[in-house]
């Protein structure tokens, strides 16, 4: 059902949407316009003069092997964060959907990580995994595993993937649990009477019925992993050691803020912006199709 309010004049409705428009302008449109403009300029080494260079920054970017490496690295990162965050959440949701004792406590606890700020989540994982003081980190070294994510790029990647995925499990869990609960119990019971084993039921009944939720979560998780994990990476590895955990978003920050290469950094931002717009459009089209 659609609810419409009819206004007499234009002043009141204009005032009502103004705050949002102002926010959008100052925090999105203006910076975005600046980024697009900067991406077409090149500054000198001291940041005093800039000249218009057209698409040169973009051309340089796509010819830069470091950038292409970062693209691949980001894809790997996004893939594993999404898969781990969703798989763990689905398993937990399946357990939470059963008749178990203390189910409500269990569910509440599982939702908690979502309330933890990304930077704090990062620090938490650092404190766990630190080779000198971290509970798990020290433990791994005592077990004879040479664990130091500050030296080993693979381990660093593993750490940021785990920290980022952990943060997203709660969110996925809520959606998966809701999806599982919306499957009528009698449908599963009918399948049991039809002779389907638990695994077969999961494959032929549960999975297809939660597919819309799964697709929605894939989009959300990809967006999250690609664009929203900056704080987690900043708090754990800062993109290091070397460039081994430098995702595209983190590279924008490093090139622009740390190395002050505004032109290239802006060009990277614009590329990311196009990416976000494409994914969002995809998501909207899917949601429209659903409703």
């Amino acid at each position: 059902m659609e609810r419409r309010t009819i206004f007499d004049g234009w002043l009141l409705p204009a005032m009502l949407v103004l705050p949002q428009l102002v926010l959008t302008f100052f925090f999105f449109l203006w910076p975005a316009a600046r980024a697009i403009w900067s991406s077409l300029e090149r500054q000198d080494a001291f940041g005093i003069n800039s000249e218009f260079v057209g698409f040169e920054n973009f051309v340089d970017l796509f010819e830069d092997p470091l950038y292409l490496e970062a693209v691949v690295r980001t894809l790997i990162f996004v893939f594993f964060v999404t898969v781990i965050a969703m798989a763990v959440a689905l398993v937990l949701a399946i357990f939470a959907d059963r008749e178990i004792r203390g189910r409500d406590i269990y569910r509440t606890l599982l939702i908690w990580p979502y309330a933890v700020a990304p930077a704090i989540a990062g620090v938490l994982w650092v404190l766990l995994m630190d080779p000198n003081v971290g509970l798990v980190g020290v433990g791994l070294n005592n077990m004879g595993i040479n664990w130091d994510y500050r030296l080993n790029g693979f381990q660093a990647m593993l750490l940021v993937i785990l920290a980022s995925a952990w943060k997203q499990v709660s969110y996925n869990f809520i959606f998966f649990l809701a999806a599982l609960q919306s499957i009528p119990k009698s449908v599963t019971e009918a399948a049991r009477i039809d002779g389907a084993s638990e695994l077969h039921r999961f494959r032929t009944i549960t999975l297809p019925l939660i597919a819309p939720t799964t697709f929605f979560l894939i989009v959300v998780n990809v967006v999250y992993a690609a664009f929203d994990t900056f704080a987690t990476i900043a708090a754990t590895t800062q993109g290091g050691p070397g460039r081994s955990t430098e995702t595209l978003v983190f590279k924008v920050f490093r090139d622009g803020i740390v190395n002050v290469n505004i032109g290239s950094s802006s060009a990277q931002s614009v590329v990311l912006m196009v990416g976000v717009i494409l994914i969002t459009a995809l998501q909207f089209r899917f949601m429209e199709k659903k409703s």
Binding site: V187, A190, A191, I193, G195, A196, S197
Partner: peptide, 20 residues
């Protein structure tokens, strides 16, 4: 025994058809 091993069929109040 498990329902699968009983060779029994059931018709539910809400039909419980597989919607997909």
């Amino acid at each position: 025994l498990d329902p699968a091993q009983r060779d029994i069929a059931m018709v539910f109040q809400n039909y419980a058809l597989y919607p997909h």
